[in-house]
C-alpha cells in the first residue's frame, strides 16, 4: 500500500477552561481544524511561535491527549477512535522525542530501564540477557557506550540525555517519530550532534519525522516540508525550498525576516510585526493574523481564508496569497 504514512483530517482540540460548578467556559481552540499528510521517509517540520498549538498538535497525533474532533489516520488506522488497548499496540510504530532532556527521563530509573521501556512494554526481549544486548545496541546507535547502562540520568549532560531519549524512541522499532523541539534546550555546540544523529537514524532506519520547532534555521536544515502554524491553524505548508525561497503567507514572510542570521553582511530588511500574538482563548475573527498583518484588508476581518494551492505542492491560507510572493533576502 502506497500513500501517506499519516493523514490528519480536520483535527481539533478545545481546552475547556475550568469554570466552577462543572460549567465549562467557551474553551480555547488550541488546534482548530488542521489537515495534512506525512509521506513515508520525509521530515515534516511544524513551525510557529509559542502558543500556536504546535506541541498540542504533536500530542494529538500520538493521542497523548484526546482530540475534540477530526481524524488521525496512521498506517491506515484512525487513532482518534481507537480503544486503549489497540492504541497502545500502535505506539510500537510511533514514538516521541521530547523537548526537555531533564524532565523526560525519570530520575529514579537507570539508563537501561529508560531505554528498555518500550522493549518491556511490548515484550520484545525474550530474556534479560537479550534485553541488555538490545539496550547496548541502541545506545551504540545513538553514540553512547554501553557502559552507561547502569548509570542514572542526573549524571549526564543535556546532549547525552537527549541521546538517551532518542534511544528510547527507536527501541521498539517505530516508523514514525514526533520530535517536539528536540534541540531547543541544548547548547549550540551540542545541537549539531543531535541533529546529525537524528538525520543518520532517519537514513539508517527509514524513519519519518514530524519535527516541531521554532528555530527556522534548524528547520531549514532538517525538513523536507514545512508547515507554519499560527493560532491553531496551518497558514502555509509546502516543500522546504519553496516555502523558504518564496513564502506566500505574510506571517511566514515576517517570521523568516525576523529570524536573526549569523552574518553581519546580510542587509536587514526586516518586516517587524507590531503587537503580540493574540491569546488563543480570544482569537480574532476571520483570518487570525489580520491584527498584525501588514497587508490586511476588510475582507480578512470577516472571512477566514482556507489553505489553497499556490503551485508545486505549496499551499497558503491567505486571501491574497498568489498576489505577493516576496522572496526573502539570500
Amino acid at each position: 500500500m502506497t500513500g501517506p504514512l499519516l493523514s490528519v483530517r480536520d483535527l481539533r482540540k478545545v481546552f475547556n477552561a475550568q469554570a466552577g460548578f462543572g460549567r465549562p467556559s467557551a474553551g480555547v481552540r488550541a488546534v482548530d481544524g488542521i489537515s495534512f499528510d506525512v509521506e513515508p521517509g520525509e521530515t515534516l517540520a511544524l513551525v510557529g511561535e509559542s502558543g500556536c498549538g504546535k506541541s498540542t498538535l504533536g500530542r494529538l497525533i500520538l493521542q497523548l491527549i484526546p482530540a475534540s474532533g477530526g481524524q488521525v489516520m496512521f498506517e491506515g488506522v484512525d487513532l482518534v477512535h481507537l480503544g486503549t488497548r489497540p492504541l497502545r499496540e500502535m505506539r510500537r510504530r510511533m514514538q516521541m522525542v521530547f523537548q526537555d532532556p531533564f524532565g523526560s527521563l525519570s530520575p529514579r530509573r537507570s539508563v537501561a530501564d529508560i531505554v528498555a521501556e518500550p522493549i518491556d512494554s511490548f515484550g520484545l526481549a525474550p530474556s534479560r540477557k537479550a534485553r541488555r544486548e538490545m539496550v547496548a545496541d541502541l545506545l551504540h546507535q545513538v553514540g553512547l557506550p554501553s557502559s552507561v547502562m547502569d548509570r542514572y540520568p542526573r549524571q549526564f549532560s543535556g546532549g547525552q540525555r537527549q541521546r538517551i531519549g532518542i534511544a528510547r524512541a527507536i527501541a521498539a522499532g517505530p516508523s514514525f517519530i514526533v520530535a517536539d523541539e528536540p534541540v531547543s534546550a541544548l547548547d549550540v555546540s551540542v545541537q549539531a550532534q543531535v541533529i546529525n544523529l537524528m538525520q543518520d537514524l532517519q537514513e539508517s532506519r527509514g524513519l519519518t519525522y514530524l519535527f516541531i520547532a521554532h528555530d527556522l534555521a534548524v528547520v531549514r536544515h532538517i525538513a523536507t516540508r514545512v508547515a507554519v502554524m499560527y493560532l491553531g491553524r496551518i497558514v502555509e505548508i509546502g516543500p522546504k525550498a519553496r516555502v523558504y525561497a518564496a513564502p506566500h503567507h505574510p506571517y511566514t514572510q515576517a517570521l523568516l525576516s525576523a529570524a536573526p542570521n549569523p552574518d553581519p553582511d546580510i542587509p536587514k530588511r526586516q518586516i517587524i510585526l507590531t503587537g503580540d500574538v493574540p491569546s488563543p482563548s480570544n482569537a480574532p475573527s476571520g483570518c487570525a493574523f489580520h491584527t498584525r498583518c501588514p497587508i490586511a484588508q476588510a475582507r480578512c476581518r470577516m472571512e477566514a481564508p482556507e489553505l489553497r494551492p499556490v503551485g508545486g505542492g505549496h499551499q497558503a491560507a491567505c486571501h491574497f496569497a498568489t498576489d505577493h510572493p516576496i522572496p526573502v533576502p539570500s
Partner: peptide
C-alpha cells in the same frame, strides 16, 4: 504531569 510520565505513555507503557 512530569514529562517522563508522558514519555512512558508515549512508549506504550500500560
Amino acid at each position: 504531569a512530569e514529562p517522563y510520565v508522558e514519555a512512558a505513555v508515549a512508549s506504550g507503557v500500560t
